[in-house]
Amino acid sequence: MRVNKPAGFTLIELVIGIIVFSIALVLFTSLIVPQAIRSVDPVFQVRATELAQSLINEIASKSFDEKSDRTGGSALCSQTVTPLCTTSDDFGAEEGFSNRENFNDVDDYDGLSETDGGIKNALNENVTIGNANLYQGFSAAVFVVYDDNMNGVDDALDSGGNYIGKTKLITVTITTPNNENILFSTFRSNY
């Protein structure tokens, strides 16, 4: 007569199975979870690009300098002939005109910094989809310097400050909600 043993797993087999399953689960989650978190990066990058491009378009559409002729005439500011262009030490918004609605030349934007709900369009309106701010969590910073040789370095650093040039480098830095800094730049020449 034959006695049948009950079929099943031993305690050791169960413990080894749980350990193998735990290791596989840890490996799987360590590969998948970071990818899920990064899946929003392209959305942030597209929004950052749109914001930077709109700022660059707005800035580049302004006069080269406060002292340039805005009526399409031939009077351009200069390094040596009157009217002299604004010196690099005097970049930034003119006194009493701290919002973008009143900016009328490229160097007015130097030092502009906007974040979250403070990011507005050229008409000083919030940018929304539905009732949600499109750029919540973003920040934008603008810097303008003279860069005649177009090497990306402020020419005032080489000359000891207070410089006047023919080409301005406009740099827009957008920081996304996940703290990625994306840099955009363009040149605006005196013509």
Rank of each mutant, 00 (worst) to 15 (best):
G72K: 03
R47F: 11
S54H: 13
S63L: 08
D41A: 14
Y109I: 04
M150H: 11
I19S: 07
V20A: 14
R100A: 03
Y135P: 02
D90P: 01
F143P: 01
Q136R: 05
P83D: 00
E50H: 13
G130W: 00
L123I: 05
N126T: 13
R70H: 08
D116R: 07
E114M: 13
L55M: 13
S39F: 09
D105Y: 08
S98E: 10
Q136A: 12
V81K: 06
T80E: 06
D110Y: 05
L76S: 07
T86P: 01
N104M: 10
S22L: 15
G111W: 05
Y146L: 07
I19F: 10
S139I: 12
V46T: 14
Q53K: 14
G118A: 11
L112N: 02
F44M: 07
I19Q: 04
T80W: 00
F21H: 02
E94I: 09
M150G: 06
F91L: 01
A60T: 14
V81R: 03
T86G: 01
I32K: 07
N131P: 02
D107P: 02
I119T: 06
T71N: 15
N102F: 12
Q35L: 13
K120M: 08
G117T: 11
S54E: 15
I56M: 15
A140Y: 00
V43P: 01
Q45G: 09
V144N: 08
V106R: 00
S30P: 05
D41K: 15
A132I: 04
G118Y: 08
V46P: 03
E125V: 08
I32P: 00
N149S: 11
I16A: 10
E101V: 13
P83C: 01
D89T: 11
Q45R: 12
N102Y: 11
V127E: 01
V33Y: 12
V46S: 13
D116N: 14
G17F: 09
S22R: 00
F21Q: 05
E125G: 02
E114K: 12
Q79F: 05
F138D: 05
E114P: 02
P34D: 04
L31F: 12
V46D: 13
T115A: 15
N149Y: 04
F91K: 02
L123R: 10
V26M: 15
D148K: 06
V43W: 09
I23S: 14
E125F: 00
S39W: 05
Q53A: 10
